[in-house]
Nucleic acid binder design. Structure first.
Lengths: 248, 248
DNA sequence: CGGTAAGTTGAGTAGAGTCAAATTTGGTGG
DNA sequence: CCACCAAATTTGACTCTACTCAACTTACCG
């Protein structure tokens, strides 16, 4: 329970594993020093809520390690995940002072937080930050629109295949992308979280995963570890163009 | 058919009806003069395609009058609208040279286009444009996420009610927002386009509109003109919080 | 006065949801 | 090291919403 030490925060920006991809990616040394004065690290255990929709939010920040989710909930409890935050992704919106979505730690996470007011001031003065944030926001918008196609038009089976395909692709790009061999990776989400992401029920998620396994599209080692023997086959099942609907 | 003259382009930025809301909103006079050198107007009739996904795109721009749609299509023809572009909305992505989505004129439209290369150069030099574009992109991202909840979790009836509610709210904000009286507005989309936006079939759209009419939530004058006698009632049907899930 | 596109309505179906019961898993305490 | 518990997951049976296919109506335009 007291495992916050397992995910130590970096000593400084030089050590930071997301230094070159986060909102600070384009900052010069002096700009990093400015940021350093207004930043602090926070850790959250898996399952903890970082912030509730509607709550006052006096910081913005980046995920350094771990995975978090952005979600909306209706009064009757239906929830829809609207974003998965991976290392280097940005949380919060400059210029807004309450959270628009629930942010929940899916795994143990470490965040680099900036006090909002000073960060906003810096954004006005140093174009590097605003430029990078614009780029990241445009990427997120593309991802959101890709997701709208999935939510609005894909079948349950295609949704699962699409999700697995994204995970597989991301994992392949981390490890050296071998051309062709079987891909192996872990599911970072519970069936219920996958359901919330995909606009399905957890039972349907479970059934479709079983069906893909039965049809040989994937293999399971335990509940969370997936092997994809033939990525092209998985891609076909996802309903996307062969050349990769994924942008950029 | 030759009615392009019905939607004359503004003479210059001073006449422009979206001057204060578009990507150029924060520009100074000298910046507008710079923009003026790289801009040109284009008109499209209702139904025409502005650009196809994947096509080379050597401009970015703003919708001045009319409505356009952003849509994605799967190989088998299923399509999902991922954005509705209203006057002042921005089209295209600086830094990318092919269109990511189909852009179609829903009504007759007039656009203000900027040649992409010079526009990108200007963005680097004048923070006013990048700042405004960031703000607009963040708004679009919020709208996209709102839409993800609709697509993933709402029933057909709730989807229709949500859509009507948004139209009603937008119309009320244009005309002086009277507190309480019945709201009247036109549907800008065909049933099929609504279906593509809402992730439904056109038959389901038609049935749910009939049902809302039968239940007294709306009245129809002709096929396209809607009266909402009690906005709160409509809002309840949409499944959103009473205080307006709409952000900002 | 057709002719076409838009919209409505009906009948039957299928895919995903709901409710309920097993089964597996990982962790805990003895 | 093992029995036990709670949570996660799977599976089954049944239901229901939205889809499909089809016919019909309406509105608009030449």
């Amino acid at each position: 329970m007291l495992n916050q030490l397992d995910n130590p925060a970096p000593r400084d920006c030089g050590d930071c594993p997301i230094r070159h991809r986060a909102v600070c990616a384009r900052c010069e040394v002096d700009e990093l020093e400015q940021l350093d004065k207004i930043k602090y690290y926070r850790s959250f255990q898996a399952g903890r809520t970082v912030i509730w929709a509607g709550d006052e939010m006096d910081f913005v920040g980046s995920v350094i390690t771990g995975i978090a989710s952005l979600a909306q909930t209706m009064e009757d409890g239906r929830t829809q995940m609207v974003g998965l935050l991976l290392p280097s992704d940005f949380v919060g919106r400059p210029g807004r002072d309450t959270a628009a979505y629930d942010v929940v730690a899916v795994s143990d996470i470490v965040m680099c937080c900036f006090r909002k007011k000073p960060f906003e001031k810096m954004m006005e003065q140093t174009p590097h930050i605003a430029q990078r944030l614009l780029e990241m926001t445009l990427d997120e918008l593309d991802a959101a629109r890709e997701w709208m196609l999935l939510l609005g038009r894909k079948t349950a089976r295609e949704k699962i295949a699409s999700f697995l395909s994204i995970l597989a692709r991301r994992n392949a790009s981390l490890h050296l992308a071998q051309g062709d061999g079987p891909l192996v990776f872990d599911l970072p989400l519970t069936r219920e979280a996958m359901a919330d992401y995909l606009g399905l029920t957890l039972e349907t998620v479970s059934r479709q995963i079983s069906a893909l396994k039965r049809d040989g599209v994937i293999q399971l080692n335990g509940k969370r570890n997936v092997t994809v023997p033939d990525f092209d086959r998985l891609q076909e099942e996802s309903g996307d163009d062969a050349d990769g609907g994924m942008l950029s």
